[in-house]
Simulated scan of single mutants.
Amino acid sequence: MRHHAYVVVGDSEAGVKAALAHIERELGLKAARNPDVIVFRYGLLPVEEARRIISIAHQGAIGGEHKAVVIVASRIYHEAQNAFLKLFEEPPRSTTLYLIVPQIGQLLSTLRSRVAVLEESKKQVALPELATDFLRATREKRSAIIKKLTSGTDEEERRENRDEALALVSGIEQAVYSAWEGEPKLAALLSDIIVLRSHLYDRSAPLKMILEHLAIVTPQGLLAGRHGLAK
């Protein structure tokens, strides 16, 4: 039975290829140069863009009976995810939705419940450089990174810093999943990350306090795998 909304987890380019292949196979739509196959690409997807996508998704197909909307995003603000809920629960009958994200944990549970997992890409997403630096850093160097991320002097710089902080948290989550072999400490860390990220999507949340807590609970040996945790 064909679903009306799918999520592809993993590398963005591999995810797009998987979505387009599914569109051609299941919907019978030619993916290339087709106005009824629309791909949106974002680093951070804000609520304003979510509303624009919703409007376009409700427009009828141009060349036939079916239309596909592919949304690629590294991160999606919670306001944007909430805006998507009605669309993903009841999209127009002619429209099939595809959401491509690096980690399924980035999605609110209410949005996750409205999508079927089409594929989890086997291609590993590279860790952001900031996340790698943070994971390898001493406590003092982590404090320096946090100071830089919380020293914005105007609204634009503060927004960019929060975006970097979201990328940092997602990168640490990715590293945890890669190192996880049933380790209880990592399970607790994942729970912390989910809570911390939910706060980061709230633009009024205290960024410095969130990152300081992350610095305390994240082990330095995480990139070394299971053995690094014992150090």
Score class of each variant (00 low, 15 high):
Met1Asn: 13
Arg2Gly: 01
Val7Glu: 10
Val7Asp: 09
Asp11Cys: 05
Asp11Tyr: 10
Ser12Asp: 10
Lys17Pro: 00
Lys17Val: 11
Ala19Gln: 01
His22Ala: 11
Glu26Gln: 11
Glu26Phe: 09
Leu27Cys: 13
Leu29Glu: 06
Pro35Leu: 04
Pro35Arg: 02
Val37Gly: 02
Val37Glu: 00
Val37Thr: 06
Ile38Pro: 03
Ile38Phe: 03
Leu45Thr: 02
Leu45His: 01
Glu49Asp: 13
Arg52Cys: 00
Ile53Leu: 04
Ser55Gly: 01
Gly60Gln: 08
Ala61Trp: 07
Ile62Ser: 12
Glu65Thr: 14
His66Lys: 15
Lys67Ile: 05
Ile71Ser: 04
Val72Trp: 09
Ala73Glu: 04
Ala73Pro: 05
Ser74Arg: 09
Arg75Cys: 09
Ile76Val: 07
Ile76Tyr: 02
Lys86Tyr: 10
Phe88Lys: 08
Phe88Ala: 06
Pro91Ala: 03
Pro92Glu: 02
Thr95Met: 07
Thr96Asn: 09
Leu97Glu: 03
Leu97Pro: 05
Tyr98Ala: 12
Ile100Ser: 03
Pro102Asp: 06
Ile104Asp: 00
Leu107Ala: 00
Leu107Met: 03
Leu108Glu: 02
Thr110Pro: 05
Arg114Met: 01
Ala116Cys: 02
Glu119Trp: 12
Glu120Gln: 13
Pro128Val: 04
Pro128Tyr: 02
Glu129Tyr: 10
Ala131Leu: 08
Thr132Trp: 11
Asp133Cys: 10
Phe134Gly: 14
Phe134Asn: 14
Phe134Gln: 13
Leu135Thr: 08
Arg139Gln: 14
Glu140Met: 11
Lys141Arg: 15
Lys141Asp: 14
Arg142Glu: 07
Arg142Thr: 12
Thr150Glu: 08
Asp154Ala: 03
Arg159His: 12
Glu160Met: 11
Arg162Asp: 08
Arg162Leu: 07
Glu164Tyr: 07
Leu166Ile: 14
Leu168Trp: 08
Leu168Cys: 11
Val169Cys: 08
Ser170Trp: 13
Ser170Gln: 09
Ile172Met: 12
Gln174Tyr: 11
Ala175Trp: 08
Ser178Lys: 13
Pro184Glu: 03
Pro184Cys: 01
Pro184Thr: 08
Pro184Leu: 09
Lys185Asp: 12
Ala187Trp: 03
Ala188Gly: 01
Ile193Asn: 09
Ile194Cys: 04
His199Trp: 15
Tyr201Pro: 01
Asp202Ala: 12
Ser204Ile: 05
Met209Trp: 09
Ile210Ser: 12
Leu211Val: 15
His213Arg: 15
Val217Arg: 12
Thr218Lys: 14
Gly221Val: 09
Gly221Leu: 11
Leu222Pro: 15
Gly225Pro: 06
Arg226Thr: 09
His227Trp: 04
His227Arg: 07
